[in-house]
């Protein structure tokens, strides 16, 4: 296979990689969805994955917490290391992995339970707390971190599905934070939201990167430019170009990248 054109332009001291993917191939049954992807995700930074529909960016994201395991016939080759540990190692427990790598989905998907129970679900199943007070504390701090506390503090027992779309998505972020993950994966978290709710989520992502490593898939190049420090451009299952966001957007080396960000295709 021809070498993938790929350039990493160093503009600042290279941050510590949290996730290291090496020659990742991914198959849905017979169909290959990812071809030989090498990618380092920087710790406590936001990495954006962009590219046209069906380019494999969401597939790659789902490889990071093994969400593809659930799909029949899905298969991953190559290695993805989280802090030097291969997450596809047979000895690794996928439940533990997902506690360390949280996920926020495209469509807000709160459980049809109360706001409190939505947040408390993760800590409960992972046995993170012993007392009701500790759980209350986790729920409160998670909602605070997700910027939702002031809006819902008086109605924690109301159903999470009764919130507005933007609030539901922040609830899902709070739910992911509640188990103190190291990495948060976001799969087009704003695609179902209006611009104001989107702005709030983006602000939130900016705050969260102080404590969490964030990988975000987005269709909006403006969003990638606004929130991310690193950007990876995928095309037809291949990682075409990866580097600091400002370089990708101002000075792309690959013509496909240039074509995409200038809106010639995608």
């Amino acid at each position: 296979m021809a070498a993938v054109e790929q350039t990493i332009v160093e503009t600042q001291p290279a941050p510590v990689p949290k996730i290291t993917a090496r020659s990742v191939d991914m198959y849905y049954g017979e169909k290959q969805a990812l071809f030989d992807v090498d990618l380092d995700v920087a710790e406590r930074h936001v990495t954006a994955l962009i590219g046209p529909s069906g380019c494999g960016k969401s597939t790659f994201l789902r490889c990071i917490n093994r969400m593809n395991d659930v799909i029949d016939g899905a298969r991953v080759e190559g290695t993805i290391m989280l802090d030097g540990e291969n997450i596809y190692d047979k000895a690794l427990d996928v439940v533990q992995l997902r506690a360390r790598v949280g996920m926020v989905f495209q469509k807000p998907n709160p459980f049809p339970k109360s706001i409190y129970d939505n947040i408390a679900y993760g800590p409960r199943i992972h046995g993170l707390t012993d007392t009701k007070d500790e759980l209350d504390h986790i729920v409160a701090t998670s909602l605070e971190k997700a910027g939702l506390w002031n809006e819902v503090r008086d109605r924690l027992q109301e159903p999470g599905t009764g919130l507005s779309g933007g609030q539901q998505q922040r609830l899902c972020i709070a739910r992911a934070i509640a188990v103190s993950p190291e990495v948060i994966l976001m799969d087009e978290p704003c695609s179902a939201l209006d611009p104001i709710a989107t702005a709030k989520i983006e602000e939130l992502i900016d705050e969260l990167k102080e404590n969490y490593t964030i990988v975000i898939v987005t269709h909006s190049m403006q969003q990638a430019a606004r929130v991310s420090q690193f950007t990876a451009f995928f095309h037809l299952g291949k990682l075409v170009e990866y580097g600091a966001t400002e370089n990708i957007f101002t000075n792309p080396t690959d013509e496909r990248t240039q074509g995409y960000i200038t809106g010639r295709f995608g």
Partner: peptide
């Protein structure tokens, strides 16, 4: 989406 949410939280 409910299954995904629960799997994503690390539920078995």
């Amino acid at each position: 989406s409910i299954r995904e949410a629960a799997f994503g939280m690390g539920a078995s």
